[in-house]
Design a binder for these strands. Structure first.
Ligand SMILES: Nc1ccn([C@H]2C[C@H](O)[C@@H](COP(=O)(O)OP(=O)(O)OP(=O)(O)O)O2)c(=O)n1
Ligand SMILES: [Mg+2]
Length: 1218
DNA sequence: ATCCTCCCCTAC
DNA sequence: TAAGGTAGGGGAGGAT
């Protein structure tokens, strides 16, 4: 019976009988024994004096009484609060100058004595009035602004920028600052950098020129924000999406805000509750001795939740299942009005929920940071030379500025190739100037030992909250939603972060407030301040980016950086300047301390840094470094350092791994595990994990920092507050969730082809109301997957389609609405919406190139593309049996069922059943043909499903799958994978967790077919679509596909017009498909291709020309795909814009454009001067030659315009193709 | 041997 | 009152 149960790890967390919790509680008894355990952590304390000292001091200072007192004063603190921001604001002027400048200064001092901190301080003061962070900026302020124009002007000038009262000299103005724009202005400034005033204010406050991109002014967003509508998903790093919550930004600017702020701070005040507490356990005022330090075995991780993951396991936890409902929740739920307003049936439940969910924020921030890092790196790559410059000499400009300004720089020729990636450049640099020389030499990675740093804020949320509550420093404080005494001791509110003082009592993140109160009755609480966390994080990352060769975003408060080159530089400089003498210093550690000081100065919060030769060790080192310190784990100490640790101390190894190790190896200690053979470890934990552990124990971890992995899925989950009474409510909720999901997809410009619905259902043995207020409690989980398809078989982000499919899948479970406790929608098989739109990233990968590659062979071309094979029907075709689709398909999971390819004939699937993904994957022309074919045959099978019907309807058009494959992709390897990915699978796979839950019966999506989905996938046929085709069509499609494929071609996709094209009849089959230059992009491919070093570039003009020729020729009868046009445009623009160090790129771009022009004149010369068609092709579908010609010219003009835009910026004029 | 797919697990 | 989200690594086991 127990299908898949989901454990709620949680449930037990909220009980007092949680084993771990009890243990901690037990240790608390010791009332007065004041220990000075500054390090309650398992590992031996470390740290250097300063931090330790501070810690101790604080500890001692506090007592419950103090807490109360302070709280009482809070109101009074108002003024202080207000002042605080102000002072820091002013401070920015003070030392705001260039932090990087300071760094260079640092270098100098280093040579002399390595007294960074002092130098920074002094230096900072010196420059007080000379901040130059805005130097180079020429700013125009439009309209009314929040900090007034006068204030902004002063700010600009004070920091070295230039203020323009008029916009008459657009050419000079680098940025426009505004809070609002009229439509006309929006148009006028379309091509300029329009930023919000926060950019300047926050940069000044940070003492750094923050990336303006994060403050781009966006009309609509502004609007939303002002309306308070606010999307649930906060696009944090977007700069301002400030919310107007209570916490809101405690911005420095307006006093009113400050006061408001105070209010927010106030919540803490109520905590005055302590007074009452005071009486109670003063005892608790003193932390227990180091919490469970002396455990016989090792302590085991800080996870206070050792939750069972299955009901069975959960059952072992005393009091978990048999429990009765949370009385408070039960009472609340008894009131219909309350339910309507506070549970999942409330109108804006999702939005409000996400806005307050810390975990949601953490996830969102992480994704945004990764993205920002990626973009920054790409930008930097473009300006590789700049990087070199920076490294070469410590410049004094701000990072961002450097990057931008240096683009022009040239000096660095060598980089010569222009295409050299930033990374490579850097490497070269660091090793020493000698290598600078060129390219190839850069060793790919020499054996140089890396210097990795793991940087992490100390109790981040708490530290951030203390900025405005200095009086709470040194006390046991936690951040959680429940504020004040109200929640009292029964609050199930989760603690997000605990101060180090609170940790001494055993309080940890994830614990409920009531548990924490039992451990420490005087614990104080602070509210969340999401906006602030985001800002601090931005400052933190900005600093790290300036010093790192590479950076991996781990979390808002955490990042891994590779500082190998910087450390090397420091070493060499030291060596040069002062020979042998200096000795004992550790450049890496000094560097880390410099970074810590910088972050502290800018953010006011402590960051700890762990340094080691690899990621794993750096993480361990940072733990030892905390709080407020740095620790360099030297090679010689690794062994001794690791031995006493436990397996779950290693990142990536948690409760489960520990259990397995204990059960199968009878040991969890690394020292003991070190005795085990690799085989033993693999046997216990699995191959890969076993090997990872084996190496980890020996201090080995060769992983590189990752910062460019493409996103693979986007999902929305709500497993809190889910309480429905009817199916209508569930449906409504699900559609809202689908909308949220769609928004997230759109936000990153992606669409998907696959959807997985996840459902949490109350476990039969669990109480109706979970222990955690409105929580999900112990549940069973179910997932079901379905193919998401838009009309043309394309990937989609349409909320309706997502909602429809989700609802369909959910209905298929037939669950009682009242039993649902969680719902999640995940979209997979993602692709970028427009290939070229946004980012400019990597582009130079031409998809085109692949086409040629066959010849050139290079490994890259794995694809073989095209060969246009004709597709003949192939001899043996398997048959696909189609069953009527039912909506849900749940049927049994007969997963494998259907496909046996044996047969010889097949029925064509109905359109809706053909896997859209596959379908999409087909070359556009092929797809069109297929559509036509379907249309012609008017197939639409009758699947009863309305959805399907609609789907097929939309799909309509094309018939036959002919394929040609042209693929292009870059990285062969991926091709295959992608192809498969595209392939469909259809049926929703339900993962059932135990079977009975499913209702079976309905027909499933595909029913049985004799062709396997996999094959369909390989053939580029979407199973879903396929299934719905009439048998004869299926047969035909398969035959064609197979024959086409025979040559081993891969099919690619393209998206395109859905309209049927009139072209010649549907014809028989495919006409030779035009060679397309397309590139479809399964984004993943593209991105991956870009992985370091693998980019493909058009290195030779000829290559490009050949590709273009094929493209134009192949599409002589069709208008070009917008995606191809965009891609091409992107490529050309990049050529023009890139490689600032030489004109090679421009020349190439011009040559290519000329060639294109020639080709167009050759084929469509007649329409060169025709006006835009607009009416595109068809209506009737017929793409007249005229329409085609116009479309091509339109594309040309579009691309030329983009090139000129860039050229104008760079050279001041348009490009001449004469 | 390689691939998927469908989970579980982990982290913040 | 509270806001238990999410993306990606990897294993098990089936298909190819
Ligand atoms: N279960 C958790 C774990 C973390 N966080 C949030 C709050 C933390 O402040 C932030 C960073 O997590 P860390 O693990 O880095 O913990 P802290 O920064 O609080 O403490 P430290 O890094 O000093 O151990 O993430 C959370 O909300 N819930
Ligand atoms: Mg932290």
């Amino acid at each position: 019976m127990a299908p898949l149960t989901w454990s709620g790890s949680a449930s037990s967390d909220y009980y007092d009988d949680d084993p771990e919790f009890l243990r901690a509680l037990g240790e608390i008894e010791i009332p007065e024994a004041h220990v000075e355990l500054q390090h309650s952590k398992p590992e031996p304390p470390t740290n250097e004096g300063p931090s330790t000292e501070a810690t101790n001091t604080r500890k001692r200072a506090r007592t419950p009484e103090d807490d109360d007192g302070h709280q009482q004063f809070q109101p009074g603190m108002t003024s202080i609060d207000t002042g605080d921001p102000e002072s820091s604001y002013l401070a920015s002027y003070t030392y705001g100058a260039s932090r990087f400048g300071e760094f260079s200064e640092y270098m100098a001092r280093k040579r002399a004595k390595l007294q960074i901190q002092n130098s920074e301080l002094n230096h900072g003061n010196d420059q007080t009035q000379k901040s130059t962070i805005f130097s180079g900026l020429q700013i125009y302020i439009n309209g009314w602004t929040e900090p007034s124009v006068q204030d902004l002007r002063q700010l600009i000038i004070r920091h070295g920028g230039v203020y323009h009262a008029y916009l008459d000299k657009k050419g000079l103005v680098t940025h426009i600052i505004t809070c609002s724009l009229t439509p006309a202005k929006i148009r006028e400034f379309k091509h300029m950098k329009v930023v919000q005033p926060e950019w300047l204010v926050e940069s000044a406050a940070a003492g750094l020129l923050l990336p303006w991109h994060n403050y781009v002014f966006r009309p609509c967003e502004r609007l939303e924000a002002s309306q308070g509508k606010q999307v649930a998903q906060k696009s944090l790093f977007d700069g301002f999406v400030s919310q107007s919550e209570s916490q809101h930004q405690d911005k420095h600017p307006s006093p009113s805000v400050a006061s408001f702020n105070v209010g927010s701070g106030q919540p803490t005040a109520p905590t005055a509750g302590p007074s009452r507490l005071v009486t109670e356990p003063r005892a608790s005022a003193t932390p227990p001795q180091s919490p469970r330090k002396p455990t016989p075995v090792t302590p085991s991780k800080p996870l206070h939740t050792s939750d069972p993951s299955t009901p069975e396991q959960a059952a072992r936890v005393p009091g978990y299942a048999a429990h009765t409902s949370n009385p408070i929740a039960q009472r609340a739920m008894a009131d219909p009005a309350w339910r309507a307003a506070h549970t999942s049936v409330a109108p804006d439940f999702i939005e409000g929920y996400y806005r307050n969910s810390r975990l949601h924020h953490l996830s969102t921030w992480k994704a945004e940071l990764k993205n920002m890092v990626l973009e920054a790196q790409e930008r930097a790559e473009d300006g590789g030379a700049a990087v070199l410059a920076r490294l070469a000499e410590s410049d004094e400009s701000v990072v961002a500025k450097i990057i931008q300004e240096n683009l022009d720089g040239t000096g660095f020729k060598s980089a010569g190739e222009g295409d050299v990636s930033m990374r490579g450049a850097r490497l070269e640099m660091q090793h020493s100037p000698k290598f600078k020389g060129k390219g190839k030499e850069r060793v790919v990675e020499d054996n140089q030992e890396r210097v990795i740093m793991h940087c992490d804020f100390d109790s981040f949320f708490v530290s951030a909250g203390l900025i405005d509550r200095p009086h709470l420093r040194g006390k046991p404080v936690v951040v959680c939603h429940s504020q004040g005494a109200q929640g009292g001791q029964s609050s199930t509110s989760e603690i997000a972060s605990a101060s180090y003082e609170a940790r001494k009592f055993g309080i940890k993140s994830g614990m409920s407030l009531q548990q924490a109160r039992k451990l420490c009755p005087t614990v104080l609480t602070m509210p969340y301040e999401f906006q602030r966390y985001k800002q601090l994080s931005l400052q933190f990352y900005t600093i790290l980016m300036a010093h790192a060769d590479d950076l991996q975003a781990v979390s808002v408060d955490e990042a891994l950086i590779d500082v190998t080159s910087s450390v090397m530089r420091i070493k060499s400089e030291i060596a040069q300047s002062q020979d042998s003498s200096s000795s004992p210093t550790d450049p890496a550690k000094d560097f880390a301390e410099a970074i810590r000081a910088q972050v502290k100065k800018v953010t006011g919060c402590e960051v700890s840094i762990g340094i080691a030769r690899n990621i794993m060790l750096a993480r361990l080192a940072s733990r030892k470094a905390k709080p407020a310190g740095s620790f360099h784990l030297l090679p010689s100490d690794i062994s001794g350092f690791l031995a006493p640790l436990d397996i779950d101390d290693l990142h990536g190894f948690g409760y489960s791994a520990r259990q397995k190790a204990q059960e199968k190896l009878a040991a969890t200690n690394l020292g003991e595990l070190a005795q085990k053979s690799k085989a033993q470890l693999c046997d216990a934990l699995g191959k890969g994990t076993g090997e990872t552990l084996y190496k980890a124990i020996r201090g080995i971890d060769e992983r590189k920092l990752e910062s460019d992995k493409p996103r693979k899925s986007v999902s929305c989950d709500v497993n809190y507050g889910i309480r429905f009474e009817s199916n209508e409510q569930v449906e409504t909720f699900l559609y809202q969730l689908a909308e949220e999901t769609a928004r997230r997809l759109d936000a990153i410009d992606m669409r998907g082809r696959s959807l997985t619905l996840k459902v949490l259902k109350r476990h039969p043995d669990a109480p109706v109301e979970a222990p955690k207020f409105m929580g999900h409690g112990l549940c069973e989980t179910f997932t079901k997957q379905g193919t998401l398809i838009a009309p043309g078989g394309r990937a989609t982000s349409d909320p309706k389609l997502i909602g429809e499919l989700s609802w369909r899948l959910l209905k298929s479970f037939n669950f009682d609405p009242g039993e649902l406790r969680g719902i999640g929608v995940q979209i997979q098989k993602l692709e970028k919406t427009s290939s070229a739109s946004t980012t400019e990233t990597g582009q130079a990968i031409l998809p085109f190139k692949a086409v040629e590659s066959p010849k050139r062979g290079a490994g890259l071309a794995a694809t073989d593309l095209d060969n246009s094979h004709t597709l003949g029907p192939s001899p043996n075709r398997p048959r696909i049996v189609v069953e009527p689709p039912s909506q849900e398909n749940e049927e049994t999971v007969e997963g494998p069922v259907k496909n046996s390819v044996a047969g010889a004939e097949l029925d064509l699937p109905s359109f809706s059943q053909v896997d859209k993904s596959v379908f999409e994957a087909l070359p556009e022309d092929v797809r069109k043909e297929l559509e036509n074919e379907y249309k012609r045959r008017s197939v639409t099978p009758g699947l009863g499903d309305a959805i399907e019907r609609s789907r097929s309807a939309s799909l309509q058009p094309l018939p036959r799958p002919t394929r040609k494959n042209h693929r292009l992709l870059v990285k062969g390897t991926n091709l295959k994978r992608i192809t498969q990915q595209l392939a469909p699978r259809n049926r929703p796979s339900t993962s059932v967790n135990k079977g009975n839950l499913f209702v079976r019966g309905k027909s499933a999506g595909i029913s049985s077919v004799n062709v396997s989905e996999r094959e369909l996938g390989k053939l580029g046929i979407d199973p879903e679509v396929f299934v719905q085709l009439p048998a004869d069509l299926q047969r035909e499609a398969l035959a064609q596909a197979r024959s086409a494929k025979a040559p081993g071609a891969t099919v690619y996709s393209q998206r395109q017009v859905l309209k049927p094209k009139p072209k010649k009849k549907q014809v028989g089959l495919y006409r030779a498909p035009p060679p397309k230059a397309k590139y479809t992009d399964p984004p993943s491919l593209k991105q991956q291709g870009k992985t370091k070093g693998t980019k493909l570039y058009f290195t030779e003009k000829e290559d490009v020309q050949r590709v273009i020729e094929q493209w134009v020729e192949g599409f002589r009868e069709y208008p070009p795909n917008q995606g191809d046009v965009d891609f091409f445009a992107k490529f050309l623009v990049q050529c023009v814009d890139n490689g600032r160090s030489s004109d090679a790129g421009v020349e190439r771009a011009v040559a290519v454009a000329k060639w294109w022009l020639i080709l167009l004149r050759r084929y469509f010369g007649f329409w060169e001067d025709a006006q835009d068609p607009d009416s595109q092709v068809d209506q009737e579908g017929a793409a007249t030659s005229e329409a085609v010609g116009r479309a091509w010219w339109k594309a040309f003009r579009e691309v030329k315009a983009k090139m000129d835009e860039v050229a104008r910026k760079r050279f001041g004029g348009c490009l001449s193709l004469r």
